[in-house]
Design a protein around this nucleic acid. Sequence first.
DNA 1: TCGCGTCACGCAATCGTTTTCTTTTGTCTA
DNA 2: TAGACAAAAGAAAACGATTGCGTGACGCGA
Lengths: 346, 346
Amino acid sequence: MKEAVSLKDIAKMCNVSVSTVSKALNDRSDVGREKKEEIQRIAKEMNYVPNFMASTLRSKRTRNIGVLLSESTRTNLMHEHFARILNSFKDAVEERGYFISFLNANLSPNRMSYMEQCKYMKFDGIFILCADYHSSEVKQLVTSNMPIVAIDHTLSKHINVASNQYGDMRRLMQLIYYRGHRKIAYIHGESNEVTGGRVNAYKTFMQEHGLPVPSEYLYTCPYRDYERGSALTKAVLALPNRPSCIVYPDDLTAVGGLNMMQESGMVIPRDISIAGYDGLNLVNIVRPRIATIRQDTVSMGIQAGNKLINRIEFPDATPVAETVIVDGMVEPGESLAVINVSKHHN
Amino acid sequence: MKEAVSLKDIAKMCNVSVSTVSKALNDRSDVGREKKEEIQRIAKEMNYVPNFMASTLRSKRTRNIGVLLSESTRTNLMHEHFARILNSFKDAVEERGYFISFLNANLSPNRMSYMEQCKYMKFDGIFILCADYHSSEVKQLVTSNMPIVAIDHTLSKHINVASNQYGDMRRLMQLIYYRGHRKIAYIHGESNEVTGGRVNAYKTFMQEHGLPVPSEYLYTCPYRDYERGSALTKAVLALPNRPSCIVYPDDLTAVGGLNMMQESGMVIPRDISIAGYDGLNLVNIVRPRIATIRQDTVSMGIQAGNKLINRIEFPDATPVAETVIVDGMVEPGESLAVINVSKHHN
DNA sequence: TCGCGTCACGCAATCGTTTTCTTTTGTCTA
DNA sequence: TAGACAAAAGAAAACGATTGCGTGACGCGA
């Protein structure tokens, strides 16, 4: 790595002072027009690239955003849903001249905490894609006064970009209902104040339509756990009062169920119907295609990015919690049978 | 963000000079034992976190590694294969005190080139997961004298961590052959000096076993292109001399073929056999499970990380190209029929 | 007692910018 | 022609660490 060219080199070349060069390159007003243009030209000719460390050391702003992406093995950047959101988030912030770095979730002995990493790197803001909000490290982070935007999680003072869990689930229920299903089981993920909307939507919808919700129609399953999705499906299929449709917490668990069913000789949707959630590529790859809610990950990422940068660039005296709801889209797939309603009506 | 505590604050608190504090915290030898311990204790009490910008401005070393991840839409961090490698790479370098940032591939008008980004951020090294090696920007990068490690791509002066394309493909061919297949078509990806090994292995194997390779048994298909995999499959199925087995460039194209076949009423592997490549989760999710080569992404990521850091920390006067071969593993799946050899023998 | 080596520590320069405050220069007006 | 004022340029102090060098104190052998 040969010596990098610095402001000083340019100054020498142009016979001006370092400060004038700095001002010229930052397009400040107190530099003469022609001198400014000359300096900019020479700088380009010399392949000048500013030194990030030096400039942010002085000016504080790093334009660097820290990304927090879980510590669980099942939910990291290997999961399509988060990868999609991150991807469009990245595009959005890069569009505005920012870039991203990952917060280091390793457990090495001398590792810094999240908060320490933020201080160390002087992040302008934090993007929490998914995290263990119970951990003290994360708590410390979210109670700080850094600009933060989280996905699918409400935080006091911060921004939450969330899918419309209640509305989306309701629309899915409507689709299932209109196809004639009345006995609908719901294997659902663990609930927080955001994702709980889905269970709410389910219960409300069932109640509104006078449908019973026997307790054996509700199960809790870890998100994105193929094996558990499969195992719980077995349990549901064994019920004396077997439902005509099973709704899953996400597409991966749904496929777990699907495969389980097909292996035991059932034909979907002839024998039973299923629906997932998320809208991964997966659902268009398995057969039959699974009904799902396609989340608008592009919009979520973009909105998260722009909201975060707005908070960074126009800080509020006392930031207040804000929620951005992003609607998903029902994809009917091929996994929902049409049922002769009268036949199944109690 | 309240004022961060700096060396100066600690110095004041301990009644020593700033340089002594710096040396104490860096565990240098020219500080008295008890003074050193006191300083470290106080620093911890004051929640001191060093300032990355300041320390690297002075010392040059950033411990920051730039990750280059393609500009194509089909191959970014949304693709499981790359996400896996990146994940273990990240773990490996974090283990050694480094961290990663992405090179910005955006096309915004005032965007910096890759080389400029490296100068700007003072990356200690570069990890090329996948890139368009024909682009001038990438060429500029790889001809620089930065430490670089690339995946599945040989570069003069740099390190290549590559899957054993020739050996893996050969083992896959053996499996297929021993199952009795003789008419084997190969839809392959675009070849470079690394991936070309697969086509070589195919041709060599066929030749060694006295099997003809009619030109209509070879097709080129973009990697990870589900649709094209499907379309080319249609072409192969229409051949008068239809093969008994089709090998695909990767799992995704293989699934494209699989679905195409199943939609036209074929049963796999009864009517035809298929094999993929990569070993994505996908192959365990579709039915039948597809025979594949599971790439050892964990090992690839770890080796890439360690080799790169070694180059960074023990730079050679004149770095020389180096290749690390990582073996994959054959996963037989359920998509390869056992054929009565005599029946199909010419 | 002198001289030498070692140990601990401080001084001050340095990294490459940004930014504030002066200073210089030039122009315009009275 | 003096005075005022704006524009353009420079000087210098930061930002927060690292690091080579200098130096005082101390111990120890001669």
